[in-house]
Amino acid sequence: METYYDPADLPKFGQIAEGNPDLARKFFAWYNAVFAEGALTAREKSLIALAVSHAVQCPYCIDAYSKDALEKGSDLEQMTEAMHVAAAIRGGASLVHGVQMLNHVHKTGM
């Protein structure tokens, strides 16, 4: 069955270099530098990536960073808390717009 998302496409990520090797090289170098151990640990960055993957709803990223978080030594409870952070920000981002709604109601209502 043809689908927009295919797990077999994830390992082919490197093929995006085909149209512009130089940009791809720069992207992957930067990407690897981003995830290197720094002021944050590699494990913390992996959990952030897992949370963001849920926020941007990227199935490739969710697969990749579920695996990565486990390999970095995180357990299900820690991964679930990270996911809830993403969900809370998404939910909060909707709700906080309610202030705009309220402003409108107060401005135009009686």
Binding site: E37, T41, A42, K67, L70
Partner: peptide, 19 residues
């Protein structure tokens, strides 16, 4: 001594020790 509880590779011991 830690072994992964699943089908994935072991974590980096130096990075995990502090935590």
């Amino acid at each position: 001594m830690s072994n992964p509880a699943g089908a994935f590779l072991a974590a980096n011991q130096a990075e995990l020790e502090g935590e």
